[in-house]
Structure formats: C-alpha cells, structure tokens
Design a binder for these strands. Sequence first.
RNA 1: GGCGGGAUAGCCAAGUGGUAAGGCCGGGCUCUGCAAAAGCCCCAUGCGUCGGUUCGAUUCCGACUCCCGCCUCCA
Length: 463
Amino acid sequence: MGISYFNTLTRQVEPFTPREPGRVSLYTCGPTVYNYAHIGNFRAYVFEDLLQRHLEFRGFTVTRVMNLTDVDDKTIRGCRAAGVPLAEFTQPFKTAFFNDLDTLRIERAAHFPEATGADHIARMIEMIAALVERGHAYQAEDGSVYFRIRSFPAYGRLAHLNLDELRPSGRVSSDDYEKESVGDFALWKSWNETDGEVAWDSPWGRGRPGWHIECSAMATGILGPQIDIHCGGEDNIFPHHEAEIAQSECVTGLPFVRLWMHCKHLLVDNQKMSKSAGNFYTLRDLLDKGWTGREVRYALLSVKYREPLNFTSDGLAAARSALGRIDAWSRRLDETAAAVGEPLPPDLNVEAFGAALDDDLNISAALGALFELIRESNKRLDAGELTPGQARTLAGWRDAANSILRFEPDAAAIPLEVEDLLARRAAARAARNWAESDRLRDEIAALGWTVKDTKDGQKVSKS
RNA sequence: GGCGGGAUAGCCAAGUGGUAAGGCCGGGCUCUGCAAAAGCCCCAUGCGUCGGUUCGAUUCCGACUCCCGCCUCCA
C-alpha cells in the first residue's frame, strides 16, 4: 500500500509520488529569529519531523531545507531596540533554536540557509531582476520593488481566495498608495531610517529583501526549480506560500511544488496562544516547569496535524503516563529478548502502525495500534507465552517504529555512588534484611533517585 | 461580508452506512516483606440540535446552534 497525503492545493488526500523515485525534496519554513520559538512554532516543526521520518521509514531519501529568517521587520526592530548589529541580535536566538530542535528530537535538516547569506541575497536580487524584466514586478515611487499580482492569474489558487472579494483590512499599511494594486507585495524594500545599518546594494538602490522572496530564493537555490513537498503552518498559506508560488514560477516557468502540506494551529487551554492572555509558552518555559523534551514531543506529536491541537498541562501529564507505559513494555521486551533464541515472527499485528501513518500521517490511529500491540504482547509476557525469539523480532519492530516516534527515555547515567548502594541493597534483600534494605532505599532517595522493586529486581529512576 | 475547518465519554482523541480504536483519569483484581511500580479487567445503547433518505446513520442530505482559522509579511 502506498503513501497518501493531503494536498492543500487540491484539498484532497492524494497518493504521494516524488519526482525522482526514492528521493524527496522537502522545504519547510523555519523560524524568524527575533525571539525564542514558542510551542506553536514547534508544533509545525514536530509535524514536519514526523513527515520526514515517515518518508525515511518508508525508504525515501529526504533532502530537507529549513530556512532561518534573520532579516525582516521584527529582527530589525529588535536589533535597533537592543542597539546591536543585526547578526549579533539574532545569533542567540539561532543557537537557542537549534538547542530546542535537539530537545524535541527533531531531525536536523540537510540545510539551514540564512536569509542574510551572501549567496542567497544575490539570488534574491537575481530573481527580482528577472521578475522586473518580464513585467511581473515594478519599482514604485518610494524605490521599493513590488510583485504585480495581476500578472500571475494563478495567484490565490493555493488559498482558494478570489482576489476581487478581498476585504479591505486595517492591516494594510498606509504606504500602499504607492502600489498599483493593494495585493501587490514587496520584493525589495528600499532603505529608510528605521532600517539603521541593515541594507544591501541592489539595482534598485540600497534596501533589503521582502520576506517572501527570501524563501523562494533559498528553496529554488538549494533544491532546484521544482520541489516535492513544501510545508508550513496554516497561516503561511496566504500570503506567504501564495507569493512563493508566484515568484518562483514566474522566474523558472515551471510548477514550483508538487505537494503543499500545512498543519493547523495549536491552542493553549482552548484559547489562541498570546502573550497578553498569559498562555504563551516557549520550550524553555515548559522545561522550567519540569516537563521533558520527549514529553512535550509526545504532546505535540500525538494529535493529527490537520486538527487543531489543544495544548494543556493535562495533556502533558497524559503524555508522561503514556510514555511510562511504553517504557515499561520496552524494558520487558528487551529483558525477554536477551535470552537465547532465533528471531521469530511474534504473530501480532505490526502492520497497522505504518499503515495508519501511510494514510495522511494518522498518528492517533498509529499510536492506537501501538498501544494495542503493547497490551497484546504484555498479556503474552505475563503468561510466559512470548518466546525470546519473538521478543527479539518485536524489539526490532519497536526500534523501527521508534525511528519515527523517538519516544525512548533520556539516557540517565546512574552515578557510581548509587550503583554501589544498589549492589549493597541487593545483597541485603537476598539476605532478607529488610531494615537494611529500607535504610539503603532512603539513602538512594537522598541522592535524588527512586528505587522500585519489581519481580525482575531493582529499578532506579531519577526522582 | 468571502473562503475554510470543527462539535465523539470527566479530559485528549481515531473511526465507520450495520451498531463506537487508543491514551489519560477513575474503579476492580493480580503481583508483593513494606513502599512504589507494573500487568490484566471494567469504564459512551452514545458520537452538537432538529428533520430527511435508508431495513439500518454517529457516519449520507438539509436546516439550525456553538467554536475556531484565514482574508496581505503570525507556525
């Protein structure tokens, strides 16, 4: 059975086939590094991670690009307020972003181009020049260059917007009188005093690129004129991705993207996340509350990407419990698999997991299949009916599934001091010296570790 | 105003024209020196409201109520 994904352009679930068999080019809109990314941003990045890992699970080689927007209105405003050069202002947020990706176990993209990279700026200017030459763009009185949306009839198709019905919005800035049409968007913004030191030379004078052309230039510059999949949050559909299509196709003359995928937004306690509502969280905020990266990953991953995700502390608590269940099963599996035995099929339904993901990344159904498998194999483990060989096969399957989920526990090295106390406690228990056993348990607890006696011996975990 | 998405148990959440996956919480049991953990079992005659089609609808159609997103640089 093949893979199918929902295409925003056609609004249908379609069979997925890349241009080149076995290889997928994937462009994902990355962060604007003017601040720490929040969990809403990370929902998108975790969704894209699921997509990439699913494709790899199915044998595709994925080349992913995730851009960093390090020049735009917000980054400029930020560096001006801080009184430092742009690059100095954005650097800490770039570093934090990569740390956060690691914490959430998001697979690194092959390329993380930065908009201010000299090659990319050069390509943006090249593309804008081509657009001007072909009549798709024009320079306005203020020196800025705009894309002429009337020159690209397909503009609005991705968002399914009828441009004639657009409602005038208060968000249209006051300088729009300089544009031919209110919908025309900036390709190159001419310098003004609020830009400070931030400017590049161009055929249209000093200025800086518009946001949309940054992505078109980095995407086509690295992945070529045609891309298999392009992702982002649903809010990127219009105008950002619409603009990317217009710019790229008017330059290359080729269809830009085969498949558009967008994830829905995240709500916190059923409300739109906002700083004013006090429900705005960065990953750091959650770690400070004692949640771990993999718990946040589970909470962000466990809801289908095309449904809004309601992010709550109950949800995080549920993630913690569910992960504990998976951990316990996983340990039992490894212990049973350790005994001698030829690998054997476990006679359990291990296909449902992948099949659910093949159906437009139905992660809820996939996790349902995983937990059913856990329950069935637990029953057999209880009954002593799962052979070591079967356990080994199942453990291999688990590892394959986990290459997508990445739910394994954090490796917590047990200090030698604790190891020593555990050994002494084991001896005391063998001698049925319960008083000594309890005393040692308290001592271990004082070091920050919790010991539990299972029928397979002592288990310690960080408390 | 235009376009689109949604409403399933205490919470989160799949799904199907034939009688509701899974997770969390809760209850029971097993295991057990104690503690804790773990495992198993149970937990929606019901899928926003009202009509219609059908042998049969949560699933299709219509109307209604409520929630949410986008409508020019917010993932």
